[in-house]
Structures are given as structure tokens and as C-alpha cells.
Design a binder for these strands. Structure first.
Lengths: 219, 219
DNA sequence: GTCTATAGCAAGATAGAC
DNA sequence: GTCTATCTTGCTATAGAC
């Protein structure tokens, strides 16, 4: 680890800690710099803006999620149950960052920003997340339509993103509404997976791989 | 129109124009006030913060969308076609604000912020948007499962929000990827609506009203 | 209640020296 | 890579006009 990397992570760690403690607005760059033991100018040498510091969230969360889901995933081969525990694990891991989530969107949605979940730069983190959902599926006893099978991990990751979006906006006590959304939709997703093998469904399922291909290639 | 309302809209119009011309960051409150022909203090008399000015986007876009969709909607009774022209009309109306969309999310996603599309304060704009989708359905020849019918406008509006989210992140030339998403998913949505009447689907469709009820009530 | 003018603070961001 | 000094700008406060 170079000196540069160490300084960088000193700053990120200090920033995320202060953000969690005091909130984003009430954490000043001066306070972050002081807590990290560097000058304000140095902090700006590594991060072009205060918002860019939110990227620390991104770096931490994918790895933490995989780790947190590992143990609960050993308990069941039922897809619905596996999905449920995986999503609940994410809620637990992400909880300290809930208040920051709005800011996170602001950063990620700047046009061309590498933090967009669909960007080239997010490829590694995205692969980690999709790999987790591949494990969710492979450890389950589900059988889905043949043409859907290779796409299912990515589809479940998109479903996960939908839950995350809802979570961002959810200010109910104890995230009651997000939990309700998970409880209600997880069985629906499982049912849709099962139904995908029916003949009436074929015209629909056949379109999905094409759709994903079109959306993926080329920014 | 009172003098108060006129001043207010002078400020919003100036702000949105400058935001589009120079971007959000590079537009100062001093410049907005000057362009609107008012003092800085007066701008702050009407809007408590610069971010609050983004709500002008919100106010404009719902009304503009309904207006822009009206004419193309006269052309067809096919649900897929009606959905397609409605979504494409939104793309046209929202296009000048694409670069601002990230900021818009930043504002809207602050916990408890009135700009959240799910908040109490957004109720009027949400009703306008949902009413548009009610018209999309009612002018079509589609028949869906009985229990789904009252919820369908809101479901289509949620689908619309999903497209909008994708659009926010879409930096492809001419919004190629968002257009592809619309072209591909519109027939899928129509097909799902049709399939909803099948018996195998009943356990799934029956859950939807309950889900929406749970998610709606109580912030 | 609506508005101007202006002074000034706090904090995000930058320039330039080392 | 790092620092100090400085600039910029969001925002507030105040005093007063109509």
C-alpha cells in the first residue's frame, strides 16, 4: 500500500465516520481534514468535492453485503427465503448510511459519473453484487425457463436495485415500509420465476435476454 | 394572479433557465436574483434554499407532460402504443432537464423532503401523473384482471418512475438506451396486463392491491 | 405582506509556494 | 503530495421603504 493510498483511505474513513455521526451537511471539509490529520487542500487533492467522498459508501457496501449474507444463506434452499435473508442482510449493512443515501444518488447520477451503478467503472462492484445473487439462485432448488437462467442473477440484482431505490425514499420507522415491500414482493418474484416455465410465458421470457443485451452494450 | 405569484414565477423561470444554460453548480443565487430582476433577499423570501428552486422542475413537468401527451394519445386504442407515445412525450418534455436530473434526485431523496415523489407534498403532482395513466388505460381496449383494474394507473405510474430512474443514469447518445428500454418493455407490460386474467396468475394479482395499500399508508 | 440594499459569516473550493 | 492563504458563494441579518 503506497503512501498515496493510505492518505486517501485516511480521508475516506474520517469522512464516512463523521457523516454517520453528524450527518452530511453538518460535517465540514475542515473537520474531515482535521480528523484525518491532513490539510483541507490535501483532501481536495484526492477528492474533487465533498460529494465525491460519498463514494466510500460504495466501496464498503458490496463487500460487506456478501459477507453479511453468507451465514444466513446456509439455512435454506427455498429461493424466496434466500432472497429474503439476502435483502434483509443488505438493510442491516446499509442502515448506517440511510441518511446519506440521497447524497449518494446525487453523486452517482451526475452524467458520466463513474459511480453510476451501470457505468464501466462500477463493473467490479456490480460483478460482486451479481455474483451474490448467482449464489442465491444456485443454492436454491428453483427451476426457471431455460432462456432465463443465465440472466436471472442480473435480473435479481435489478430487483435489488429497485428495493434500494425504495429504501432511499423510505422514512418510515424502522424501515417498516421497505420491510413490507420485501415481504410482499419476494414471494411474487419467486412465483414469477416458477411461472416463467409455462408456455404462455415464452413470448415474454424470450424477450428478456435481448433486452438486457441492448441495455448493456455501449455507453 | 397576485403580485406575489408573479414574483415567485419570475424567480423560478430565471432559475430554471440559468440552470439549463450553465448547470446547477455554476448558477449563483446572485445571478438568479439579477436575472429575475429582484434582490437576493427577495429570492430567499420565496425559496428557503437554492435546492428548493429545483421544485420548479417538478411543477412544470407534470403539466407539460399531460399537455404533450394529449395529441399523440388520440391516435390509438392499443395500450402498448398509448404507453409508448406517453413515455416518449415525457422524454421530449424532460429532455432540457436531463443534466439536472442528478441534482433533482439529490433534493428529492433527502429523508422527509417534500419533493420526494411519494411525499404528502407531492400529492397534487402525483395525482396529475396518475390521472394521465388512467387516461392511457381508459382510452385503450385492454381488459385486465378485475382486482387489478383500480390499481393499474398507479402501477403504470410506478413503471414510469422506473423508466425515469433509468433515464437519469442514461448517458447514451440521443438517449438510445432509454428508448430501447421503452420499446422493449412496453409490449411486456401490455402482455403482463393481458396475462393477469389467467387463472394461474390470480394468487399473484390478488397480492398487488394489498401491497400498494401497505406501502401507501403512513410516512 | 412584499421588497431593496448591503454587510457579513461559514464553508466549499482553488492557487501557488514548498 | 502537501500546506497555507485566499477566493467564492450559499445563506443570514438588519434596517428600512412602500
Amino acid at each position: 500500500m503506497t503512501k498515496s493510498q493510505r492518505t486517501r483511505s485516511l480521508i475516506v474513513d474520517a469522512a464516512l465516520r463523521l457523516f454517520r455521526e453528524r450527518g452530511y451537511e453538518r460535517t465540514t471539509m475542515r473537520a474531515i481534514a482535521e480528523a484525518a490529520g491532513v490539510s483541507v487542500g490535501n483532501a481536495y487533492y484526492y477528492f474533487r468535492s465533498k460529494e465525491e467522498l460519498v463514494q466510500g459508501f460504495y466501496e464498503h457496501i458490496a463487500a460487506d453485503h456478501t459477507a453479511a449474507a453468507a451465514e444466513p444463506l446456509t439455512g435454506s434452499t427455498d429461493l424466496a427465503q434466500r432472497l429474503r435473508v439476502t435483502l434483509l442482510a443488505w438493510l442491516t449493512v446499509a442502515e448506517p448510511y440511510h441518511a446519506l443515501a440521497g447524497r449518494f444518488f446525487a453523486v452517482a447520477a451526475q452524467p458520466g459519473n463513474p459511480l453510476s451503478p451501470f457505468s464501466q467503472a462500477s463493473y467490479p462492484a456490480r460483478q460482486v453484487a451479481i455474483a451474490l445473487y448467482r449464489e442465491v439462485i444456485e443454492g436454491s432448488s428453483i427451476r426457471v425457463a431455460e432462456e432465463l437462467e443465465p440472466e436471472l442473477p442480473e435480473l435479481l440484482w435489478l430487483y435489488h436495485l429497485g428495493i434500494v431505490l425504495f429504501w432511499v425514499y423510505d422514512d418510515s420507522a424502522g424501515l417498516r415500509r421497505t420491510r413490507a415491500l420485501i415481504e410482499r414482493t419476494v414471494p411474487m418474484v419467486e412465483r414469477l420465476c416458477r411461472l416463467s416455465r409455462l408456455r404462455v410465458f415464452r413470448p415474454l421470457t424470450r424477450q428478456i435476454p435481448q433486452l438486457l443485451t441492448e441495455l448493456r452494450n455501449g455507453d
